[in-house]
């Protein structure tokens, strides 16, 4: 039949997927190695490196920093992004398109350039190596996505539904709370999940703005693997992937992840 794949084509697809997923899949068995050094296949199996990980103060601290930063960045991006998206969609004023472009522009900039620029700015503002600095730096990566997702989600919301609520006696705040906000929920959930993951996994910007006193988990991993290769990082990686999976699954449960992403 026309369009149906041949067997060689199917085989090629399988190989490509293996290539694509290999680096993620390999860390899982490695994390259960009990060897002192990285070896494959491991000579002995066990939870030794997980135990080491949970006693590695640097990694533990970095994890909690990452977690807290991600939570605050998510809340901040929603708090700043949703009103902005609402204003851009529902008000007509000059410069609207320019503002939209400005808000999404950080997406276009390579993070190495953005990271350097933020470093140089933060040196002057004395934000380098601070929690606040990390939050602000991460927000510039997450807010463009929030603005985009929320403005798509607002555009899909028919204005007549809000007008219907108005005609039934709902005041503007009531319309927002009872109609607009509930209908924006899928967008809010998608934005939160994406913001959290982007912040939690952010490396390049973090590398520039973290310092000896404060480090996020990805930065800690980066610094660690630059000098040593042992199975502990496989354990951290499994933890990181697990956190990501957790976020995806919770979103999947509430609205269907693929739908949220494809939208």
């Amino acid at each position: 039949m026309i369009g149906s794949p041949t067997w060689t084509f199917r085989l090629l697809i399988v190989v490509l997927y293996l290539f694509l997923l290999a680096p993620i899949m390999i860390v899982v068995p490695l994390s259960f190695s009990n060897d002192p050094l990285l070896m494959f296949p491991p000579r002995s199996w066990g939870m030794r490196w997980y135990v080491e990980l949970f006693h590695h103060q640097g990694m533990i601290d970095a994890f909690w920093i990452s977690f807290r930063v991600a939570i605050i960045v998510t809340l901040l991006s929603l708090a700043a992004g949703i009103p902005a998206a609402y204003a851009l969609r529902r008000f007509v004023f000059p410069g609207r398109d320019a503002l939209m472009a400005l808000f999404t522009a950080p997406l276009l900039l390579p993070s190495i350039v953005l990271g350097l620029a933020i470093l140089l700015m933060f040196v002057r503002l004395q934000l380098l190596g601070t929690f606040t600095g990390l939050v602000i730096a991460h927000s510039i990566v997450t807010t463009p996505y929030v603005v985009r997702i929320m403005s798509t989600s607002l555009a899909a919301l028919p204005p007549t539904v809000e007008e219907a609520a108005t005609m039934l006696g709902a005041s503007p705040p009531q319309v927002f709370r009872r109609v607009t906000l509930p209908l924006m929920m899928p967008g809010v959930i998608a934005s939160s999940a994406l913001s959290f993951m982007l912040s939690f996994d952010e490396v390049v910007l973090s590398l520039f703005v973290t310092g000896p006193r404060i480090s996020t988990l990805p930065v800690a991993i980066f610094n660690y693997v630059e000098v040593r290769m042992d199975p502990m990082i496989a354990c951290v990686s499994v933890v990181l992937v697990a956190v990501t999976l957790l976020v995806i699954l919770s979103v999947e449960r509430s609205l269907g992840f693929t739908r949220a992403m494809v939208k």
């Binding site: 490695l30 990285l38 490396v203 991993i221 290769m229 496989a234 990181l240």
Partner: peptide
């Protein structure tokens, strides 16, 4: 998945 994790995977 974090790029450091994947890069680590490739190193391994």
């Amino acid at each position: 998945v974090s790029s450091v994790v994947r890069t680590y995977g490739w190193m391994v």
